[in-house]
């Protein structure tokens, strides 16, 4: 089994393997089999489209957590003209699970804050697998308040398996750090655009997720409890996670339907990781347009809208 492909993508993987094989044969024999290869490529593309047109919520969760899924830094390093990372919460430390700093988006200064899972074992450990501790959320808060002072829009990129559940997290007040962000973001006097790029897990996600616009990438996921956690509580086994994902409605399309998500941002066929450059371009265009759109709204009006929106959740 090819680890780059998810279980439900195996038919695509098989086709791609065949294409690769043919290419090798072609190289060896100088036979013109490019027609055949092109046909297979077209078939693979259509197969991908067919499979992705009808993903189950659990399959979407798998794509959102794909090991090759673009992470916050993949976007940050490609989407902006400049980026100066800013570190530390000024109280305890610098949480590597949250990356933030001043960047330029199409020439305009913005404050970008993203949860970073890290790729490869060493970096995953360094980033604590994208599970922020209180100092991470407090760093985010510090940067957001700075953005308010210097009139920069805030862009957040959400991608976390959750706030870190550990002794030190609790000792330093992980609950308070999340709650404080929710409170302050509700009235921060600068536009805030939040985008779920991968996995938006519960309190750890919403802690940088309150703003004027909430985007979700097409195959990202957002939930109050992980499907495994939900399944464990209800069915006492994580094997029922697919059922839990179904019941909770964890996909961008479902959450848009519920009015919680404003925009779902389309991904290239087969998911963001199949074509990073295309994905970066799509996201960059979308965020640029949204920054411009929000810049045109007087700040008091924007804040009133943000507050009314918050008050309306569930109505």
């Amino acid at each position: 089994m090819n680890l780059n492909y998810l279980d439900f993508e195996q038919p695509i993987a098989d086709l791609e393997a065949k294409i690769e094989e043919l290419q090798l044969v072609g190289n060896d024999n100088e036979l013109n089999i490019s027609d055949e290869i092109n046909k297979l490529r077209e078939k693979s593309r259509r197969l991908t489209e067919t499979i992705y047109a009808d993903l189950t919520p659990w399959q979407v969760v798998k794509v959102a957590r794909h090991p090759q899924r673009p992470y916050a830094l993949d976007y940050i390093t490609r989407m902006f003209d400049e980026f100066d990372e800013l570190h530390g919460d000024r109280h305890f430390g610098d949480d590597k699970a949250i990356v933030g700093g001043i960047a330029r988006l199409n020439g305009k200064p913005v404050m970008v804050i993203g949860e970073e899972k890290g790729r490869g074992v060493t970096e995953k450990v360094y980033r604590n697998f994208g599970m922020p501790k209180p100092e991470g959320y407090r760093k985010a808060l510090r940067l957001m308040e700075m953005a308010e002072r210097f009139k920069m829009p805030v862009l957040t990129l959400i991608d976390t398996p959750g706030a870190y559940p550990g002794i030190d997290s609790e000792e330093r007040g992980i609950s308070e750090s999340i709650a404080r962000n929710l409170a302050v973001m509700s009235r921060l006097r600068t536009p805030i655009i939040c985008t779920v790029i991968g996995e938006g897990s519960s309190g750890g996600a919403i802690a940088i997720g309150v703003g004027d616009i909430l985007n979700m990438l097409q195959y990202s996921t957002y939930f109050v409890i992980s499907p495994e956690g939900c399944a464990n509580i209800i069915w006492k086994t994580i094997d029922k996670a697919p059922l839990a994902a179904e019941a909770m409605g964890v996909t961008s399309s479902k959450l848009k339907e519920l009015g919680i998500v404003d925009e779902t941002i389309p991904e290239p066929p087969g998911g963001a990781h199949r074509d990073l450059d295309a994905m970066v371009a799509i996201l960059k265009n979308k965020l640029s347009a949204q920054v411009d759109q929000l810049a045109g709204i007087p700040i008091d009006e924007l804040l009133a809208k943000r507050f009314d929106r918050l008050m309306s959740y569930g109505n």
């Binding site: 509700s186 519960s202 309190g203 939900c230 569930g314």
Partner: peptide, 17 residues
């Protein structure tokens, strides 16, 4: 849990007020 993301959003709502 049974209200999924609607319940998560109540965190933001109550904190805002």
């Amino acid at each position: 849990m049974q209200e999924a993301l609607i319940s998560l959003m109540q965190m933001a709502k109550t904190s805002a007020i």
